[in-house]
Design a protein around this nucleic acid. Structure first.
Lengths: 187, 187
DNA sequence: GTCTATATAGTGATAGAC
DNA sequence: GTCTATCACTATATAGAC
């Protein structure tokens, strides 16, 4: 594995743990086992390296989600598979945790992979809900676009509750609640 | 207003905008118009000042929420009032935005006001849901504790979606979706 | 491509005068 | 109580040798 590759993966890990503001180039270099000059040879600076790391993390997250969405089963089952997916809850969401970072929120470029990821998740769940409605799996009255956004938000909010309490159970309770709500629409 | 008071309010504002890691004592002092020595006279250091600021923000948030919860109306209406409450969405939640901060998440003392706030919100909504169930406002099958957690999570997640997209509409869509889901349980 | 040296600014705090 | 001075350390690079 090349040095540039190791730097990106180290940046991914540190961004996940400490966010953008909390991650220094020096820390990335040390984790990657690379010198100062080496990093600045491969990347223009911290924002450049961070952007590549964020893009990579966002892609990986979408791929993990798609695995669950494209399973066999009913719409409800596939959405449940996504919500109940195994997660390292107390590490937080490696994409969503960056949303409040002032340098990320303030930079359209750094923010773009986040926006794209959540737009993708929402759209994908919306499609499943529409499919379920057509097949009579859900009763009427549901607004798929809104409900899909709410379900994506439940997962992101569940991370916030869990980290605030220092307990995985808070995550699980919120996700169960999301599914309990969705179940109210099942025919 | 005393210097200590101005320092706390300045810290509240900067913690809201930039989080704990992104907020320096110097920045707080400048915003408060106080010198270095003045801050260290009134507070033991950054963690001490931050703790007092976080506690204050958490209290204020709970008071704002309680205003909506204790309104007249049905359980659904009062929960909706909380969800639809006016918010400075793109500034994020001043309490929830700290949950992913590594120094906050890693400090039981700094984290405690967050955990307390979300426990309060969840419990309060759970009470409203139970009240609604008893009065026949909601149909059976609902698990109040789980649904309450999900609704709190929807709000926190909605902030994440909005900041990621740089658009308030994402917040509004997720919250509408949360209410659309809850409406499925109304008798 | 990688290394060491150097630079400027900021961080979080202490010391001691006023 | 507040101020200025100072400190050791880190952040984010740039320069230039190898």
């Amino acid at each position: 594995m090349g040095t540039a590759e190791r730097l990106i993966e180290s940046a991914q890990q540190l961004l996940w743990e400490r966010g953008y503001v909390g991650t220094s180039p020096k820390a990335i270099q040390q984790l990657a086992g690379a010198g100062q000059g080496s990093m600045y040879h491969h990347f223009a600076g911290k924002p450049d390296l961070a952007l590549q790391a964020i893009r990579r993390s966002a892609e990986e997250l979408r791929a993990q989600a798609e695995e669950k969405f494209s399973q066999p089963g009913t719409a409800y089952e596939r959405i449940a598979a996504y919500l109940l997916r195994e997660r390292d809850v107390l590490r937080g969401c490696r994409v969503g945790r960056l949303a409040h970072d002032p340098e990320v929120a303030g930079s359209p470029a750094l923010r773009e992979p986040l926006g794209e990821t959540f737009a993708y998740l929402r759209r994908r769940i919306e499609e499943l809900l529409e499919e379920g409605l057509e097949q009579g799996e859900f009763v009427g009255g549901m607004v798929p676009a809104d409900v899909a956004a709410a379900l994506v938000a439940v997962v992101q909010g569940a991370y916030v509750l869990a980290q605030s309490a220092g307990s995985v159970q808070e995550f699980e309770r919120a996700v169960r609640g999301g599914l309990n709500l969705l179940a109210a629409y099942t025919a």
